[in-house]
Write a protein that binds this DNA or RNA. Structure first.
Ligand code: FES
Ligand code: FES
Lengths: 134, 134
DNA sequence: GACAAATGATACAAATATGGTATCATTTCT
DNA sequence: AGAAATGATACCATATTTGTATCATTTGTC
């Protein structure tokens, strides 16, 4: 029942750190030192972020990662999608059986409403919004 | 990211069926026949429901299960708690690191709000409300 | 009392998801 | 050429989910 798994969490932290050091090329080593994330796992995560257009990577000496787009346009929801698949709280419960409600399923309606609400809220969470000191 | 796991789902279906046949003693065999649930798994689930005060069980020939309380007072949330542990979407993401927001964590605040909302909604879902044809 | 029909308790097992490691190839700067 | 970085990919350990299997106990009926 976790909304956010470990890899999403790590990705979020890495992106925040990279965003906080904007205009600096950030190698994996720097992130490992700063955040407390196992190196090979972080590397895999960074590669995934790169493949999915959230980071730009630069190989070779002096290389590393930078944000692929402004922090305002990177959403927690993006990370959830990348690492946890499409956001879907709401698969039909009575999978193998007809729903007890012949016409419209109250349960499905309600879970749909919940999911919509969660989505709306998640859509407001960006990397930028997590960095703002206020 | 499932809100509801298989055992919760099965429990819900079983309870609905038992509720729909109120005043009838319902043995596990009856439920297996009606719903499409593997028998040993269902038996385990029924035993759990009994232990947690959601069903009353009667042993011996002619025995079976009945609701332990009115369908209006059995909540989906009860099932989630029993089978999936306490409802908690919201463990701190930056577990091992200081949060980027020194004082109050925007992320935690927001996830808290989401969790509260989901809880409020879930609290409205009872077995009775799923049975109502309307 | 014997037997059958039910649940109780509990241990075991398979499948899947999660959280990670390890290795080698490739690029690029110096 | 060599070092420092990422890319690709295969592997592995653990936890969780989704079950199965077995035997003991209770209880109604003949
Ligand atoms: S639970 Fe799926 S339609 Fe009702
Ligand atoms: S994420 Fe936990 S306090 Fe900020």
């Amino acid at each position: 029942m976790k909304l956010v798994t470990r890899d999403t969490d790590y990705a979020l932290r890495a992106l925040c750190y990279i965003a906080a050091h904007k205009d600096t090329m950030m190698p994996a080593g720097g992130l490992v030192a700063a955040l407390d994330i196992p190196r090979p796992f972080l590397r895999k995560i960074l590669q995934t972020l790169n493949r999915n257009g959230l980071l730009k990577s630069y190989k070779g000496q002096g290389g590393g990662f930078m944000l692929a787009k402004p922090a305002e346009r990177i959403f927690l929801l993006d990370l959830i999608k990348v690492f946890q698949g499409p956001f879907k709280l709401n698969e039909c419960l009575f999978k193998r059986e007809a729903c007890p409600n012949t016409k419209k399923c109250v349960l499905k309606q309600r879970l749909d409403r919940i999911e919509e609400h969660v989505l709306r809220e998640l859509k407001n969470i960006t990397i930028a919004s997590l960095l703002r000191k206020h």
